[in-house]
């Protein structure tokens, strides 16, 4: 049985906290909230995360709730997704102010940087997924607008090592997007959840995906690359895309909607958080601990090997909690 210890509580936000994103160094994180701000927070001293210190409060970027936040995996840029319909690249001391990205018709739900930091994806209640190329110096170019989802898109997330995008939707499906030449297309639709898919994450190798849903289950999907097709002339022209097969479904761990999932790229543990006020930690399909106080909107493993046992969570109580998970055999 793993031991889970609460290390710290960060009480800066004035409304529910929605999402957390760790800086790639694992040494600080940012969080976003219904209070329309983003906080950047850092433990002092760095390797003993008991006392946290707010570095910066990013205000005035958005007129409504900031629903999503993401640290660039390469630079120090932050991207924010807001219900005001825009995607912000908030300016911080030492950074140039960049005009927000517009285009979505209504609430932006999630934002994600690709592994190189060269692409930025957003999704919205308007059912669309947008991909922007980051040209630097505040320049962004819209490279694709994908409209295959039939409902609200809840989350977008990039593959850890490739330019492959996954999106999760209120239409109960997950879609995988790839680029072909200069345009993007839906290469796979993962159906199986019986209600809204709220979140997903890849494993470190990127050949597995975990998704969590309002149907209270967690599903694991494996990527299967098809064999060379022994085809006749006419079918040769069709590209073969890898398919994703559901290899496991975990039910009965959470008793309400599961909102968030994080698959550690370091040790492979999966953490999920739910409307049932609990966090679950899974080592290969076994539940080892549950914990919690209020609706938990987000869990995120620390991405750095040095702090891989640290888990952060964000809840409706407006508090960010920092956990240490040890003794997992």
């Amino acid at each position: 049985m793993a031991k889970i210890k609460l290390l710290a509580e960060l009480k800066g936000h004035h409304d529910r906290t929605w999402q957390i994103s760790w800086h790639r160094s694992g040494q600080f994180l940012c969080s976003c909230s219904g209070d329309r701000t983003v906080h950047e927070t850092k433990p002092v001293p760095v390797d003993h995360p008991l006392v946290w210190h707010c570095l910066d409060v990013l205000e005035g970027v958005h007129k409504r709730t900031v629903r999503g936040v993401a640290f660039s995996p390469v630079g120090d840029d932050i991207a924010t997704a807001s219900f005001d319909g825009t995607t912000g690249i908030p300016s911080r001391p030492g950074y140039e102010c960049v005009a927000p990205l517009e285009g979505h018709e209504n609430e932006v739900k999630s934002v994600a940087w690709s592994h190189t930091g060269n692409l930025l994806a957003t999704c919205s209640r308007d059912k669309s997924v947008w991909i922007w190329e980051v040209l630097g110096d505040g320049d962004f170019e819209c490279v694709s607008i994908l409209q295959e989802h039939t409902q609200d898109v809840k989350m977008v997330l990039w593959h850890p090592t490739l330019d492959i995008l996954a999106s999760a939707s209120y239409d109960d499906t997950i879609r995988i997007w790839r680029d072909d030449d200069d345009d993007w297309y839906c290469s796979a639709t993962l159906s199986g959840h019986t209600s809204t898919v709220w979140a997903l994450d890849f494993n470190a190798a990127g050949d597995h995906l975990v998704s969590v849903s309002d149907d209270q289950t967690m599903k694991f999907w494996r990527c299967e690359t098809p064999h060379e097709l022994t085809s006749t002339g006419a079918t040769l022209r069709f590209r073969q895309d890898p398919t994703w097969k559901c290899v496991a479904t975990l039910a009965n761990h959470h008793t309400r909607c599961i909102y968030s999932v994080s698959w550690s790229k370091i040790h492979g543990l999966v953490a999920s958080s739910s409307g049932d006020n609990s966090i679950c930690i899974f080592a290969p399909d076994r539940i080892t601990a549950a914990h919690g106080i209020s609706d938990i909107n987000c869990v995120q493993w620390n991405p750095s090997p040095d702090y891989a046992d640290i888990l952060a969570s964000a809840g409706d109580d407006g508090v960010i909690r920092i956990w240490q998970v040890t003794d997992v055999e």
Partner: peptide
């Protein structure tokens, strides 16, 4: 999509 890029440039 290219209209979006243009709109941003103008904006």
């Amino acid at each position: 999509r290219n209209i979006q890029t243009l709109m941003r440039k103008i904006k």
